[in-house]
């Protein structure tokens, strides 16, 4: 799994940083997403998928797996 961010879409709600704090953080300046681990280990994939799904601006793209669907 590789994480890519559509930075201009991020609205800094912080769901990703709350759901997967080891993988996502937020900038102190404007709260937008900061990726701590762009290729997270397997045991974090579930959290990362949840974070991508719950992102209200679809700013998180996941590569190297079946495409994330918008639920």
């Amino acid at each position: 799994m590789k994480i890519a961010i559509h930075r201009n879409r991020c609205i800094a709600v912080g769901n990703c940083a709350a759901l997967a704090p080891e993988v996502f953080d937020q900038s102190d300046e404007d709260g937008t997403v900061v990726v701590l681990d762009a290729a997270p280990p397997d045991h974090r994939h579930e959290q990362v998928r949840e974070a991508a799904l719950r992102c209200p601006s679809s700013a998180i793209a996941l590569h190297g797996e079946t495409p994330a669907h918008d639920g």
Binding site: I11, A12, G14, N15, A17, A18, D25, Q26, D30, G31
Partner: peptide
């Protein structure tokens, strides 16, 4: 809205919470 919201989002991150 985006301009104004960005001034505040840094204060309401998950970490700050």
């Amino acid at each position: 809205h985006t301009r104004l919201r960005r001034m505040l989002t840094g204060s309401f991150t998950a970490r700050r919470a």
